[in-house]
Design a protein around this nucleic acid. Structure first.
Lengths: 215, 215
DNA sequence: CCCTCTTGGATAGTGCTACTCTCCAAGAGA
DNA sequence: TCTCTTGGAGAGTAGCACTATCCAAGAGGG
């Protein structure tokens, strides 16, 4: 198919598709002449993945490029491809280096990972964006004076572990390696709002249970 | 204290503090003369809360104003104030109305809430931002062809329920009503990156467990 | 062959938003 | 009195995801 059809089928304007091509998010089509290129289903899937990352995940376009680079890097093992693709997914709010609060948050994080027995994250993942985000979030909590010791964090970690099991089960349910990686990236991102909104609803339930009757 | 000191103690530039004053996020100080105003600790706390919402929660300034309006609305009950303050916290990515996928997502959401017995969310919260976000996220998953039946969502809901219990316990640990509300808002927002980054780390662990050895 | 239409490609512009710069007049403080 | 700071207000900035416009090279019908 050509750009116009790709645009129509994906529901994304040709201008935006061109933009993604230019930015290297979408691989160029097969050049069929000097002025025409041919796109296929893989471009359509890729386009949908991009939209998921940009619109739902709100990743900056440059970050999406990095993530997709890892998705496409066939020189890596399956685990590494999944890992490094998800790895590149950030959540910004980086902590300020050399801060007293940050140092304390770092200690808390380490203690938490140790207590959980998450050896992989502790070794290979000590510099992962997710870990940095965790440290940043904890130091933010500290700065605002909210409790965030390991005992406070453990319930979240346990919930996260449960969710991660579901996530990986879903990923493993795909046979094709390529699809697995795409599913890992897409579901990591797409299930985030699901998890967060369910948390809000659960909070409303719980709040109703605790404070609701005498309102 | 005056603006300069407020700025210094909060680590926020005077220009930005003035901006927050202008936008109505920060209540004006007590006017002590035509050219000077006096700020107190409550302004400092409020400023920190604003930063949490804007920087960590990435809420638009206009939304923060709405949230704070509910926080300050003493005409509401405690439950309502907590509820409506957290209520106003969105996560955008609104679903497209009148869409077939959206309609299906709505059915799934309803079924999920019924299965969970979350009556409060089903009745009062049917139009809450969190609910709309859930529907939007599910329809996004559907559009990308990923499974998202109630059986897929239940693990997330259960995790959310656990987390919500921790959240409310933390809120209830405060004696002062004002502090409870601020804690509810701040912790809802500040624990989000904690939860999401822990999920990423847990995914890495789980991926390592499943695919790691033969890498 | 001609004529129009579309295509891919490039460049510059738009709209939004959080923040910041610059200016100002009215005091504060010595 | 004289300088310095303060709070207030408007306009400007930066970054980013797009988008509008233009262009030359074909495609495709007659």
């Amino acid at each position: 198919m050509r750009l116009a059809e790709l645009s129509e089928r994906s529901g994304i304007s040709t201008a935006t598709v061109k933009y993604y091509l230019r930015e290297g998010l979408l691989p160029p089509g097969r050049r069929v002449s000097a002025t025409q290129a041919e796109y296929d289903e893989s471009h359509l899937r890729r386009l949908r993945l991009i939209r998921a990352l940009v619109q739902v995940g709100r990743l900056p376009v440059a970050t999406v490029r990095d993530v997709l680079k890892n998705v496409d890097d066939t020189s890596l093992s399956q685990h590494s491809r999944i890992g490094s693709a998800v790895w590149a997914l950030p959540h910004d709010s980086e902590p300020a280096e050399g801060d007293a609060e940050t140092a304390e948050a770092e200690r808390t994080s380490q203690a938490l990972l140790t207590e959980l027995g998450w050896g992989f994250s502790q070794s290979a993942g000590a510099e992962s964006p997710a870990y940095r985000t965790l440290v940043g979030a904890i130091s933010a909590l500290r700065r605002l004076g909210y409790p965030c010791g390991t005992e406070n964090l453990l319930p979240y970690a346990r919930a996260a572990a449960q969710v991660a099991q579901s996530d990986l089960e879903l990923v493993a349910s795909y046979d094709d390696a390529e699809e697995q990686i795409e599913a890992a990236v897409a579901c990591t991102v797409l299930y985030e709002p699901v998890l967060l909104s369910l948390r809000r609803l659960a909070e409303a339930e719980e709040s109703d249970r605790r404070f609701g009757v005498g309102s």
